[in-house]
């Protein structure tokens, strides 16, 4: 599936819910189901420290594609981390750099990606793109 298709899939899943609390229930569920973060990667260099919550992000290049792992100490943030990993992990640096992330807006979670929110998510998205640039540079 392309990044665009994955985003459309997420939008479809969230469109079933009108009520905010239902959307957040789904996010909490996604946060709880996220693959456990490899403790070896829980290091200062992988920490994105928001004022309110913390996010950890690890990236590796495998067969030309970026494999992301992520975590957060807040479950709602972790749910959004899970969505970002689902959409971007397993794609090439070029694909990650070329695609805009529109699903967050569409499912009504834009506020969590506002720079004033200080939950670490804005920095996480920037960091994911930065990893794509770095791995692209390494590939030459």
């Amino acid at each position: 599936m392309t990044i665009k298709e994955k985003q459309e899939e997420v939008i479809e899943e969230f469109s079933a819910f009108d009520d905010w609390m239902d959307k957040y229930s789904l996010l909490i569920e996604l946060g709880n189901e996220l693959d456990s973060f490899d403790e070896a990667y829980r290091q200062e260099q992988n920490l994105i420290d928001g004022c309110q919550s913390k996010v950890w992000l690890h990236a590796e290049l495998k067969d030309g594609k970026i494999d992301f792992q992520g975590d957060s100490d807040a479950i709602i943030v972790k749910g959004i981390v899970a969505l970002l990993l689902r959409v971007l992990s397993g794609h090439t640096p070029d694909e990650i750099l070329e695609n805009d992330l529109f699903f967050i807006d569409e499912i009504g979670l834009k506020e969590h990606l506002s720079p004033t929110r200080s939950n670490g998510l804005v920095a996480m998205v920037k960091q994911m793109k930065a990893y794509a640039l770095a791995f692209k540079a390494k590939q030459g």
């Binding site: 905010w20 609390m21 807040a74 943030v77």
Partner: peptide, 11 residues
């Protein structure tokens, strides 16, 4: 986490 509690209460 306080952030989660605050976010849901906001809604």
């Amino acid at each position: 986490h306080p952030f989660d509690v605050g976010t849901l209460l906001d809604k």
